[in-house]
Simulated scan of single mutants.
Amino acid sequence: MSEARQGPLAGVRVLELAGLAPGPFAGMMLADHGAEVLRVDRVPAVTDKPRADVMDRGKHTIGLDLKSPEGVAAFKELARNADVVIEVFRPGVAERLGIGPDDLHAVNPRLIYGRMTGWGQDGPLAPTAGHDIDYIAISGVLSMLGRDGGKPTPPINILGDFAGGGLMLAYGVLLALFERERTGRGRVIDAAMVDGAAILFSMFYHGVQSGYWGPRGTNLLDTGAPQYDTYETADGQYLAVGSLEPQFWDAMVSLMGLTDLPDRHDREQWPALKARLAEEFKRMTRAEWEAVFDGSDACVSPVLSMAEAVGHPHNVARGSFVDVDGIHHPSPAPRLLGEPDQDLSPATRLEDLSAWGIPAEDAAKLRSQGVLA
């Protein structure tokens, strides 16, 4: 991996305390745009190698025993030379280890301390365990997801862990970096997945309270409407229909050769219209329908598997995916036009810590003590 990273965050040093999905995702978002990210793992066996996870691309790693005084002292030295720390423990754990915000700001007042939790740093649930599904549940978001008559259905762990968690933390880090240019001081970021999930649904809170948005699965954008849903094709594949506006709907039904359809503006007619579309789409295979809609404004797209998405002509033309050591990665996003390509190589162990404030002889001593790996 290249030592010198490029991009708008070049020169920004990030210490990422190893953890589950949202922390590594935030670190990846920063590394993708030039930040130098050093992930601090627990001390592993000598034969252990860094994970080859997509979210660890472009990073360096070390193992450090944070339960030893020597490991804590070493971490503080790393923090002295860092711009950002990403911390993923339950509230109070970092303080007990001696690496909480106050501990690190004492050695580096410019440090941005990003705290990633599910429930946040305070509140009655803060000290308890949870997962993505729990955080989106109490934010009200999970109640909105699912089909009419069905139970609430979580969209895997995208909303809480990644969008409401990791992405919001990365956004908070950028805000704090921007602010630091004016103030010269760091800041503590309290990124809670329950908060992040809630704000992602900002558009819908008024709709629910005003009565415009009804029970899950009965609305325009949640599979209630025939013009915004998925339909099975003759070969057991699926098409996604998003023909909301009149011109897009007209394009779709015209290309399908449909006439005398129930009124799509009449909610009472939605079930009948859905049934008619479902019957029609099952007439042909997905590929045949793709040919029908190719190049049109019908807003009908094939539902591709992740393997198929890599080879779709549009994704290929844009370079939406990149091969890294035989693994397909999504390319960094968003795109900053003119930004150089980043090194997306898998994480590698960082042997030389001198640039991070730990001379070679001190690192060798820590290794001999089993504190540093």
Rank of each mutant, 00 (worst) to 15 (best):
I62F: 09
K282G: 01
P50C: 07
I136Q: 11
A364T: 11
A360G: 04
G140P: 08
L30W: 10
W119T: 07
L64K: 14
R335I: 14
V310K: 02
F25V: 05
P8K: 00
A4P: 05
E179T: 02
K67H: 07
A198H: 14
G214S: 10
P8N: 01
K282W: 01
P154V: 15
E245A: 04
A364S: 08
D263F: 02
S68P: 04
H131C: 11
P154G: 15
G326H: 10
N157S: 15
P154H: 15
A333F: 10
M203G: 10
R80P: 09
G123A: 03
G7Q: 04
G150W: 02
R96N: 10
A192H: 02
A18F: 00
S210F: 14
D190C: 03
E16I: 00
L350V: 09
A347K: 13
G165K: 05
P24W: 05
G100F: 06
A251H: 09
R367D: 08
T233N: 03
M144C: 13
L372F: 07
E288Q: 07
L177Q: 00
K76A: 13
N315Q: 08
S202V: 12
Q269P: 00
P302M: 02
V93F: 02
T183I: 06
E245L: 03
P155T: 04
G295L: 10
M306D: 11
N219Q: 09
L239I: 07
P262D: 06
G160K: 07
A355G: 10
R349G: 11
R264I: 01
M116S: 12
A163T: 14
M1F: 02
F25D: 14
W270S: 04
D229N: 06
E77C: 03
E181C: 00
S296Q: 14
E36M: 12
P330M: 05
T47A: 07
I133C: 14
S368R: 08
R367L: 08
E70L: 06
A278M: 01
G196V: 11
L145D: 14
F75C: 03
G338D: 06
P24S: 04
Y113R: 13
A129R: 07
V188Q: 00
L344A: 01
I156P: 06
W213P: 00
M168C: 06
I327V: 14
P262N: 08
M55H: 09
P24M: 03
E339Y: 01
K151D: 12
G160Y: 09
T230F: 00
L353E: 11
V188L: 04
A347F: 04
D132S: 07
V72N: 12
G118W: 09
D132Q: 05
D48Y: 05
H265G: 09
F162K: 01
H105K: 03
A287E: 09
G130C: 06
R80Q: 13
I189P: 07
L344G: 09
D161H: 12
Y205V: 12
R115M: 15
P109D: 07
M55L: 15
A26K: 11
T233W: 03
V300Q: 08
E87A: 03
K67N: 03
A18C: 14
T117N: 09
E16K: 01
A191V: 08
P262I: 10
V324C: 14
A333S: 13
Q247A: 08
N108E: 09
G11K: 05
